[in-house]
Design a protein around this nucleic acid. Structure first.
Length: 448
RNA sequence: GGCGCCUUCGUCAAGUGGUUAAGACACCGCCCUCUCACGGCGGGUUCAAGGGUUCGAAUCCCUUAGGCGUCACCA
């Protein structure tokens, strides 16, 4: 049996959307699960679309996603070069052989000479796809496609076949958009007398637009590039994990959180789905949150560092313990902690809470003695604060929630805060805490 | 339009002739609670439609509809 070899063959556009990343992931997972090789090949035969540094961009993106090629432009390998624009001589040779054999012909144009593939007019071509079974397309649907462009560059449909054969690719994993051009490839393999690789055409990843419509992922629909997601503060592992499950599911298991090693261990082709999958931020958010929750406070503080740069080291660690259980993506952090830096405008409404039977008047009655107690706290630590407030609650005869409500509002002007009152007091420090409480108390009196 | 692919809860999906049609996210409710979150418990919602085949169909066949893709010297 031949060695399993898969490849990811992007064109260097400087943009890696999630659908592409998933294709690369599956090709990688399949190769690795079979002890095979994963090859990165750059298909840069369209000179008009060439983007500088795109190759490095692709390599960086794959590296971030922990998809590591065994062979590629900067990884070396016995079949180098892995950039198609550096393989022009090879394509030329094979195209000319096709002409010689009567399977292709020259075409004169104003820009130069091109070579076209001669398609059979009758009959049909069938190929086997692991996901879809046999697919048959009438040869009359096939046009005499260009193999070699007048600028000397091969077309995708040609270079692809030549390279996949020369690089000994055993399984071609790519998107469904190539299903209809596969017969042309198959004919080429037959002309050359080459063994056919195994085809696997993956269903597309769809995006949901704001109006709720669904269509193939693009910049318009969801702007879902790997890089955008990283920018938003999702962990690469979480993205990879989520993307793996968009179109694949493990056999005999309901596991959803997978490390890369686990993905490799569990991956199999028959877990692939034939139908399109819609990219869902809600689920990504959940999965991302699972990754954050699993982190230590220290690790979280490290990845979140730039989002709360204003705090000292101990406070960062403490903040991390509060934040890591309630964050979907790192960029959520600034809004969540903004109140610590700047108190939102006073809002009387917030001092009313039905469940705890709190009114502005009641709030004032609670704040006044609470301030006195806190003013006398010198050891401004979580333990002490907790202790003092608990004692205050016990003395007041009120419910815990009732006491906490006005305090939290006065300190944050928010119904929802990361952490409870003692945590906020601690983070704010004594001076600012007392200031905010006094300020709220004054305003409550005035407004009454 | 021709050709091709696809169609199980709102979303990701398990399921391959006999199941109460898994599980997860989201949603709703309850509990816990110092809000939120976390955690616990519970709930509703699904086999695109119509015909067959069969004792029996989400599973097999046909038709229809819808979605997607493709018809480039783009990949």
């Amino acid at each position: 049996m031949n060695r399993i070899r898969t490849r990811f063959a992007p064109s260097p556009t400087g943009y890696m959307h999630i659908g592409n990343l998933r294709t690369a992931l599956y090709a990688y997972l399949f190769a690795k699960s079979q002890g095979g090789d994963f090859i990165l090949r750059i298909e840069d035969t369209d000179r008009a679309r060439y983007v500088a540094d795109a190759v490095e961009f692709i390599e960086r993106t794959l590296a971030a996603a922990k998809i590591i090629p065994d062979e590629g432009p900067h990884h070396g390998g016995t079949f180098a070069p892995y950039v198609q624009s550096e393989r022009m001589d090879i394509y030329k040779k094979y195209a000319e052989q096709l002409v010689k054999d009567g399977h292709a012909y020259y075409e004169e144009t104003e820009n130069g000479v091109a070579i076209r593939q001669k398609m059979p007019r009758a009959g049909e071509t069938t190929f086997f796809d692991v996901l879809h079974g046999n697919i048959t397309i009438a040869n009359s649907e096939l046009e005499d496609q260009v193999l070699l462009k007048s600028d000397g560059m091969p077309t995708y449909n040609f270079a692809n076949v030549i390279d996949d054969h020369l690089m000994e690719i055993s399984h071609i994993i790519r998107g469904t958009e190539f299903i209809t051009s596969t017969p042309k490839h198959v004919l080429l393999y037959e002309f050359f007398g080459w063994e056919l690789p195994t085809f696997i055409h993956l269903a597309p990843v769809m995006g949901k637009a704001e109006d709720g419509t669904v269509s193939k992922l693009s910049k318009r629909h969801g702007a879902t590039s790997f890089n955008d997601l990283i920018e938003a503060g999702y962990l690469p592992e979480a993205i990879t994990n989520y993307v793996a499950l968009l179109g694949w599911s493990p056999k005999n298991s309901c596991q959803e959180i997978f490390s890369m090693d686990e993905l490799i261990k569990n991956f199999s082709l028959d877990g692939l789905s034939k139908s399109p999958a819609v990219f869902d931020y809600a689920k990504l958010d959940w999965m991302s949150g699972e990754y954050f929750k699993a982190m230590s406070d220290e690790d979280f503080a490290k990845v979140a560092d730039k989002y709360f740069a204003d705090f000292d080291a101990p406070r960062k660690i403490f903040l991390s313990s509060l934040l890591k259980t309630r964050v979907a993506k790192l960029s959520d952090i600034p809004d969540m902690i903004a109140f610590l830096k700047n108190l939102p405008p006073f809002d009387l409404e917030l001092f009313t809470n039905k469940r705890n039977k709190i009114t502005p008047q009641k709030s004032a009655e609670i704040l006044a003695p609470a301030i006195k107690i806190l003013e006398n706290v010198d050891d401004w630590t979580l333990d002490t604060l907790n202790e003092k407030i608990s004692a205050f609650v016990a003395d007041s005869g009120l419910k815990v929630g009732a006491i906490m409500w006005p305090l939290r509002i006065a300190l944050s002007m928010q119904k929802v805060t990361p952490g409870g009152v003692t945590e906020i007091l601690y983070l704010l420090g004594k001076k600012i805490s007392i200031e905010r409480l006094n300020d709220a108390l004054q305003k409550l009196k005035v407004d009454r």
